[in-house]
Design a protein around this nucleic acid. Structure first.
Length: 210
DNA sequence: TCGACGATCATCT
DNA sequence: GATGATCGTCGAG
């Protein structure tokens, strides 16, 4: 029993991320995102992700090889966190993938609270009985619940303060895919089925087509 | 329950 | 000067 718990909390190695963004996006479902604040621990099970393929993906911040101060982390080796501010008030957390040339990353869009629910509710300024998805059902909500902001940009995801652990990896038949959210500007790339979620999970950011 | 809308600012052009 | 990988609120039905 203890061995099982240890196994679930074992940090994913950096090699986990040195694969295509699409592979990593699927494989991150069911993994545990663990945030340590002081001696408190917050744990989410990842239930929704999106792959951004990098230089060849119009929806990606690395589209066409663009390099800016904001996105430079995308060109580091896989395994780092890419965090950016969106709409002036929310943050988005990504895992950088592959080896550093491609600019690929995986946006962590939603999580199911496992440990520290009350603390997350407080950070989200929620009432006593939140509905599924209120706490971390969206990239901005997730970062707010876990107190993730620009401080973590460039940090590796095996850091004590923010890491991703083995968790309960999802079986292939429990994973559904759909077009990504909020990338209408990206032409044909907008319809690529690079959004992944656990089938039927109520904590996702927006309903899936099935 | 749903669609429209505006907040707000680091970063980019 | 413009923009955005979002979210909460508000009004209509």
């Amino acid at each position: 029993m203890i061995a099982a718990v240890v196994s679930r909390s074992a940090t994913l190695p950096q090699s986990f991320y040195r694969r295509s963004a699409t592979e990593v996006a699927r494989d991150l479902l069911g993994r545990h995102l663990i945030r340590k604040i002081g001696d408190r621990r917050l744990v989410l099970s990842i239930v929704e992700t999106e792959a951004y393929l990098g230089v060849g993906d119009r929806a990606s911040h690395a589209w066409n090889g663009r390099r800016t101060r904001r996105n430079q982390v995308l060109y580091e080796r896989g395994g780092a966190a890419y965090v950016y501010l969106i709409y002036g008030m929310y943050h988005c957390l990504n895992a950088v993938t592959e080896g550093g040339e491609e600019g690929g990353a995986v946006l962590i869009r939603a999580g199911e609270p496992l440990v520290g629910l009350r603390s997350m509710q407080r950070r989200r300024r929620l009432a006593r009985r939140p509905r599924a998805g209120d706490v971390a059902g969206g990239p901005g909500k997730l970062c707010q619940a876990l107190d993730v902001d620009l401080r973590f940009n460039g940090c590796r995801l095996d850091d004590a303060a923010l890491r991703i652990a083995r968790g309960e990896p999802a079986a292939a038949d429990r994973v559904v895919s759909a077009a990504r959210i909020g990338v209408d500007y990206a032409g044909s790339a907008a319809s690529w089925p690079l959004r992944f979620a656990l089938r039927g999970n109520p904590h996702v950011s927006k309903p899936l087509p099935w």
